[in-house]
């Protein structure tokens, strides 16, 4: 009984601890924001791992989908719940902000999933490095389209999300952002775990091994590719929405190819097709970025250098394609993967 629910207990107690600590302000806002960015990074790296690791494609435009999610959910949130120069008074009574906030984030994710079709449909015919280009081009197209939308700020960016959070805190004073980031992170990991270990996920794995053979074995590759791309980009959109609300400000420039590179590094550092690897490397990478912050510009020399050295000694990433429970077999008593 204890073993069966151990993961649930662990997660609930972790979440409870986080909320308690944030509520009592025992940790500084800086550490709290680092923890929240960690959650966003976990969402991004695991969702990219779905495409790059499990499906074996090479997508390098993940930040573009994040951008769609961030903009859709923040514009929607500000439009509905906050007084704004552009959109005027709130459309709905801000008292509902609390209940509708997760819905807004999910709508952002859904919009990002639709943007994922931009990559998914060409992927029927295009493979490998040609698909990589399509993802880069999609990233540029999305950013450039938003830069040209002057009504939502264009390249100057868009803000006002803090007012939505204030509206939520007016109803019930709780640290809402950490709660939602935690909840969505768990949701994302749960969804991907269920996805890849389902029968459908076997199809994803089959595409990774050999697409032609999978097609012959009656795997509907086009359908699987479409859905996987949409799930991946949708989760990235959720991550982007949370990112926007944590910062309270978005501009298209922060979702450029450098951000995509960052996410890609997290995936390949953790190991392709390793869910726990992505989670661990996202945590590790976020901490590394913050620890090295005092170095300023040198940081971006030190981190790539470290990664190159890691690649030289472990050319398959930190975890390879193994999960945590493969490395520490005693963990299998508590949870199973697949």
């Amino acid at each position: 009984m204890f073993k069966r629910y151990s993961i649930h207990t662990l997660l609930v107690s972790m979440g409870g601890l986080l909320i308690y600590v944030a509520y009592e302000e025992m940790i500084s806002l800086y550490i709290l924001s680092v923890l929240m960015f960690m959650g966003v990074n976990i969402i991004l790296s695991t969702s990219l791992n779905l495409v790059n690791g499990y499906m074996g494609e090479f997508s390098c435009g993940h930040a573009g989908f994040m951008c769609v999610g961030a903009y859709v959910s923040s514009v929607l949130g500000v439009w509905l719940f906050a007084k704004d120069k552009v959109f005027g008074p709130p459309l709905i009574n801000p008292d509902y902000a609390l209940y509708l906030f997760p819905l807004i984030i999910l709508i952002g994710g859904f919009a990002a999933a639709l943007a994922g079709l931009l990559v998914a449909i060409p992927s029927y015919k295009t493979r490998g490095d040609y698909l990589a280009i399509i993802t880069i081009a999609a990233n540029y197209i999305i950013i450039s389209a938003i830069e040209n939308l002057d009504s939502i700020g264009g390249s100057r960016g868009f803000m006002g999300m803090k007012r939505v959070i204030t509206a939520m805190e007016d109803i019930a004073y709780l640290p809402w952002m950490p709660i939602w980031v935690f909840a969505f992170t768990i949701f994302c990991i749960w969804l991907i775990r269920r996805y890849v270990s389902s029968t459908f996920g076997k199809g994803v794995n089959a595409i990774c091994q050999d697409e032609v053979a999978a097609e012959i074995m009656s795997v509907n590759t086009n359908k699987i590719k479409t859905i996987t791309f949409m799930v991946s980009s949708g989760l990235a959109g959720i991550g982007g929405g949370l990112f926007a609300y944590i910062l309270g400000y978005v501009n298209p420039g922060s979702f450029n190819i450098l951000k995509s590179t960052e996410v890609m590094v997290m995936v390949y550092l953790g190991g392709m097709a390793s869910l726990s690897g992505s989670v661990l490397s996202a945590i590790f990478f976020t901490i590394l970025l913050e620890v090295l912050r005092p170095l300023q510009i040198i940081k971006w020399i030190v981190i790539p250098l470290m990664l190159i050295i890691v690649m030289q000694f472990r050319p398959e990433g930190l975890m390879g394609s193994r999960e945590l429970s493969d490395i520490f077999p005693w963990m299998k008593r508590f949870y199973r993967f697949k």
Partner: peptide, 10 residues
């Protein structure tokens, strides 16, 4: 490819 990206950043 990732190593190449990192070299570019450096």
């Amino acid at each position: 490819v990732i190593t190449a990206l990192m070299c570019g950043l450096i």
